[in-house]
Structures are given as structure tokens and as C-alpha cells.
């Protein structure tokens, strides 16, 4: 099951892969642009305006990533790229309406793998799409989570958390990434506890962790960096493939934990969902030429040294994965054990 994972990060950190950090099967790649669609004929898109829809308000992570990458893809294609924010229904609204857009490559969206993908797998209300509906252009970033606990609380390692009599997570609400990840970890490792929901945003949840009124939370890995280095939050578990170098060595990743087969099946499926990360997707059945153009252009743009430098300066780590590999990942997810989708269905 544990095969090597695609690694081509030209980016800041490369931590020891450890004992098969990867969980995903079947995808290996190198740093070459996706070869699938041939040379990438962009004649149909040249001079056009391509809209990339961000399903959230301006200023958030998805927005920043899109605005960061867009100019470099623009350069490759010779088209104008307009970034549009279309918040609504926790990001589902924009993806639902993407289904009906023209599949000529002029409308794309950035997807929230865990949020939107999870809703779709769970069959949650509001997600009117299946993950394999979309045309995958390429992944901008992976989206691992970090479980943190209060620095002043009694639980300073993941073992403490598992051994807790009652562990209280904080979350914004069902269906949110923090809710899904923390509930899933609780369920898989049989941690007795509850998820306190209703926080207006991750900022307020963090505040409650720092104050110690909840025991811990799950959150975006890179966003936790400041608090971890500031020693107000203790990192306990990386829910993702690799541990960045700013985290202490003794913070395990999920793959480094000892698990039963049943547990690892669920975790693997969830890691695949996390691995989906933040991809650019297009409407179903996109025009072949436009798709190969976009895939090739994105692959080339993500290699651009200027973009790489800029993303490092912004501490926005890029993790490109070509569209055809994302398709494989989606296929894995569609084939995930039913126990996983049943578990997810309780969380949305």
C-alpha cells in the first residue's frame, strides 16, 4: 500500500521522507510538465479572458494562492486572467455553478479538496457534484492540517491526546475542515471527547486554545507556524504527508503512527483527500485542446523561478501536482472503502 509519493518540491523544505510517508498508490512523477495533452495548443485561449473563481472572500488562503499564481499562468498562455471571488455556502456555491459553465477553458475555479471533496464523498446536502465531474488542471498547493493543543494544558503529545479521558476540540462547525479532521481523528483513534462547535472563525478558535478553554484544534499547517514558534500552541500531529522543517522532529505525521489495518485504511483515504489539496478545476468534459493548454501552461508556470521565490517570501508553499495525477487521486477516492464515506457522512 505504501508506495513512494510524488516529490518534486523545489520548495523550502524537504524533510526526511521517513518510513514511507506516502500513502497514495500509483502516482509517481518527476518535475516535467504533464505530458498528457501533447504540446498544449493555446490558440483557442490566446487573447481571451480566463476567469478563475475563488469560492471564498478575498484575503483568505485560496484567494491569495490564486492571485499569486494567476499572473504566471497568464504569461504562459498569453491570455488575461481575472480572479473572481464568489463566496457562498462554504465554497460549494461556486463549484455547483462551475458545472454549468462553458467547458472551453475560460472558466476555472480553485477547489477546497477537504471541504468540497469531502462534502461530495459524504453525499452532503449542497454538493451537487461528484469529484470526478470536474476537469483537473493541476494542484496549486497541498493542504495538510496540524493538530495543536493548548501550550498550558495537560496534553502535550499526541499520546496524551489519545490517552485523554475527555478531549475537547474547537471548531467552526460541521463540514468545516477543522471539524472533519478532528472528528475523524477522534473516531479513528477512539479518543473520548467532543467537538465544541460554533466558533465564528479559526482566529476565535485559536484564541480559545491559547486561553485553554478548549484542549485543541485542527488547522491549516502553515497558518499555525507563528503560534507554534511563539509557543502559545503545541503541535501534536501532522495530518498530511510530510513534516515541515520548522516543526520539532518529535511531532509525528499520521503515517508515522502505529495503526491497525482498519485504522490505516481510513487514514489513507483521508490523506488522499488532503492530498487533493487546492487544485484548479474546470467544468466537466473540457475541450481537449483547452485542457492540454491549461495543464501545460500551469505546469510551466509552477516551475517559474520567480513564482517559486515569491511563494517562499510569502510563506505560501506551492505543491504542484499535474492534472492527470489528480485524476488518479480522485479515482482512488472514488474507490475508497465504504467505511470512509460512511464516517464522513456523519461529519457533514
Amino acid at each position: 500500500m505504501n508506495t513512494a509519493l510524488p516529490y518534486r518540491r523545489s520548495l523550502r523544505t524537504l524533510v526526511a521522507l521517513g518510513l514511507g510517508a506516502g500513502v497514495l498508490s500509483g502516482c509517481s512523477s518527476d518535475s516535467e510538465p504533464a505530458a498528457s495533452g501533447g504540446s498544449g495548443d493555446c490558440s483557442s485561449l490566446e487573447g481571451e479572458t480566463i476567469t478563475i473563481v475563488v469560492p471564498y472572500e478575498p484575503g483568505g488562503g485560496y484567494d491569495s494562492y490564486t492571485r499569486l499564481v494567476a499572473p504566471y499562468i497568464e504569461e504562459e498562455i498569453g491570455a488575461t486572467i481575472a480572479v473572481q471571488n464568489q463566496p457562498g455556502a462554504g465554497g460549494l456555491l461556486a463549484l455547483n455553478s462551475l458545472l454549468a459553465e462553458d467547458a472551453d477553458g475560460t472558466t476555472l475555479a480553485i477547489m477546497n479538496g477537504v471541504g468540497a471533496g469531502g462534502s461530495s464523498i459524504a453525499g452532503a446536502e449542497g454538493a451537487n457534484f461528484s469529484l470526478d465531474d470536474f476537469t483537473y488542471i493541476g494542484r496549486v498547493a497541498s493542504d495538510p492540517s496540524l493538530l495543536v493543543t493548548s501550550a498550558t494544558g495537560p496534553y502535550q503529545t499526541f499520546e496524551d491526546v489519545v490517552a485523554a479521558d475527555e478531549f475537547r476540540w474547537g471548531s467552526t462547525g460541521p463540514g468545516a475542515e477543522d471539524y472533519v479532521t478532528s472528528s475523524l481523528i477522534s473516531a479513528v483513534f477512539d479518543i473520548p471527547g467532543e467537538v465544541v462547535t460554533g466558533f465564528p472563525g479559526s482566529g476565535e478558535t485559536e484564541l480559545a486554545v491559547v486561553q485553554g478553554s478548549i484542549d485543541g484544534m485542527s488547522g491549516n499547517l502553515t497558518s499555525r507556524r507563528g503560534a507554534v514558534e511563539d509557543d502559545t500552541q503545541t503541535p501534536v500531529l501532522v495530518v498530511g504527508e510530510e513534516r515541515p522543517d520548522w516543526l520539532p522532529e518529535d511531532v509525528p505525521t499520521v503515517a508515522e503512527l502505529e495503526t491497525t489495518e482498519e485504522q490505516s485504511e481510513l487514514l489513507d483515504a483521508h490523506l488522499a483527500l488532503i492530498e487533493l489539496g487546492r487544485p484548479f478545476v474546470g467544468p466537466p468534459g473540457m475541450d481537449e485542446a483547452a485542457m492540454s493548454c491549461l495543464r501545460t501552461a500551469m505546469a510551466a508556470a509552477m516551475e517559474n523561478p520567480e513564482l517559486v521565490t515569491e511563494s517562499q517570501e510569502q510563506e505560501r508553499e506551492l505543491a504542484f501536482l499535474p492534472g492527470d495525477e489528480l485524476e488518479g487521486l480522485v479515482q482512488d477516492l472514488m474507490d475508497a472503502p465504504p467505511a470512509y464515506s460512511e464516517l464522513l457522512a456523519t461529519l457533514y
Binding site: 484575503g59 514558534e229 511563539d230 510569502q314 510563506e315
Partner: peptide, 30 residues
């Protein structure tokens, strides 16, 4: 709260928080 803990007090300061990271500052003790 943005300066003290990196926790934004509103929508505007949430965006400012990303600016902290861009220019290489860590909100909090620093």
C-alpha cells in the same frame, strides 16, 4: 489581537495578517 497573537479582530485585520507573513514578520511576542 492581531499584533499580540496573530488573531485578527475583523475582516480587514485578517487580510493585514497575511501582510505580516509576506513581509516576514511573526505576529505575537516578536
Amino acid at each position: 489581537p492581531t499584533i499580540g497573537f496573530g488573531i485578527p479582530g475583523g475582516a480587514g485585520s485578517a487580510v493585514l495578517l497575511s501582510a505580516f507573513l509576506i513581509v516576514g514578520l511573526n505576529p505575537g511576542e516578536e
